[in-house]
Amino acid sequence: MASSHALASGMGGMRTAGDLVARMQMTRGMRLPQAKQYVAEKLGCSVEDLSDTIAMHDIRRDLGLGRIQVQDLSYADWPGAMEAKFHIAEVLDLPLNSVERFKDHAGLTAGAAVL
């Protein structure tokens, strides 16, 4: 059922920009058109690009937003999961709780960010 929904109507998650649009919905309560527009502006691409795996493959690479690991495209010197979320927070201008807690626990800030 999960795959059926993903193919029938889903944005595509990390294959595209679905996770980025989702972040604007879940943390800012943005409706879909507004969330898509916000993310497209931050990424410097069109709204149509957001659901295009080919376009987003390059955009995510260039901005270090994380990509799904596949055998021929996975390099250790590219951002991993936590590192990618640091970039996502910066690009979307959106504090991510996991990133702030990571900084806090790693002693990278004087104190936890006020979220």
Binding site: A6, L7, M11, G18, Q25
Partner: peptide, 18 residues
């Protein structure tokens, strides 16, 4: 056997209980 939305109409899937 399968039906899908048009290009550009894709929505966010939150997958509760993934």
């Amino acid at each position: 056997k399968f039906s899908a939305v048009d290009y550009g109409d894709e929505v966010v899937l939150s997958f509760d209980g993934s």
